[in-house]
Amino acid sequence: MTYRRLVTRTAASRDEGQGETRGRRSPRLSLRTQEAIWGWVLAMPIILGMLLWTLGPMVASAILSFMKWDLLTPPKWVGVANYVKMFTGDRLFWQAVKVTTLYALFRVPLGLAFGLLIALLMNQKLPGIYAFRTIYYLPSVLSGVAVALLWMWIFAPDFGLLNVVLWKVFHIKGPSWLFSETWALPAMVIMSLWGVGGGMLICLAGLQGIPTELYEAAEIDGAGPFAKLTRITLPLMSPVLFFNLVQGIISALRVFTEAYVMTGGGPNYATYFYGLHIYTTAFADFKMGYASALAWFLFLYILALTLLVFKSSPAWVYYEGRPRA
């Protein structure tokens, strides 16, 4: 039935086509050319979008980083002055780099470890495991201002939940967290661990991809749980951990909303993250050229760290089917 319809249709369309082509053969494009034209047309939004919102602005900000511009007076070419000032004359720049790096240094490994640990526990057939997975993942759905406000209340010095619990359970007089120069940054790290569910889920997917025969074979050879963890699970999970590490570094270096809402960079610049420095320079001080230079430094810093991780990867990341270097 369908075949016949197909035949009659194509026959009909061929007849039409012949009728047409006889009249104007040359303007009719080959199917190949038609496809190419449609390809370009349909892809046009992203090509334009890339030029307008990514590549164009990228070039513009590179040029701008060698200029001085306060939006009111015309921009002035200043050469590398912005970069010189950044490294030699800007105390806040170094503070921002220090705070952000320190934060990443704690948040990234802790996040990785907790994510993997929870995923390991969860990778078993337990009753209600689905509910657990939902609960653990829930906080990472709710990033943003509302979460920042919730944690401000939890970290409140006198009546915040955390200090109340510390006092009642351990008889420890808790610090004033977000109001303390020493404890504000650790508070931000603690808060970030609440959202460890995303990394956990990726780890869980990785764990479920490990063939069970490997564990069975190891068991026959007399491997205990520890040997199975270090000889099978961790090597096979290393690509996933590698991915989570890179992602974690990038997102830790770009923290903005939490810091802006919770502390505004204080007290005494103890949580003055790099994102805040860019924002303040550009949209409070209107130093557009200098802010562009700051943004470029962030980009290069992220790139350098990512490259470092990539370079280190042959030593610890194991890809199946490829011998370990």
Binding site: I46, M50, W53, T54, L55, G56, P57, M58, A60, S61, L64, L71, I250, R254, G275, I278, A282, F283, M288, A291, S292, A295, W296, L298, F299, I302, L303
Partner: peptide, 18 residues
Amino acid sequence: LLSTLMLPYEVTLIPKFM
């Protein structure tokens, strides 16, 4: 297109604003 994924939005923020 894929390589633009590497670019943090902070870099394009200021020119886009302008």
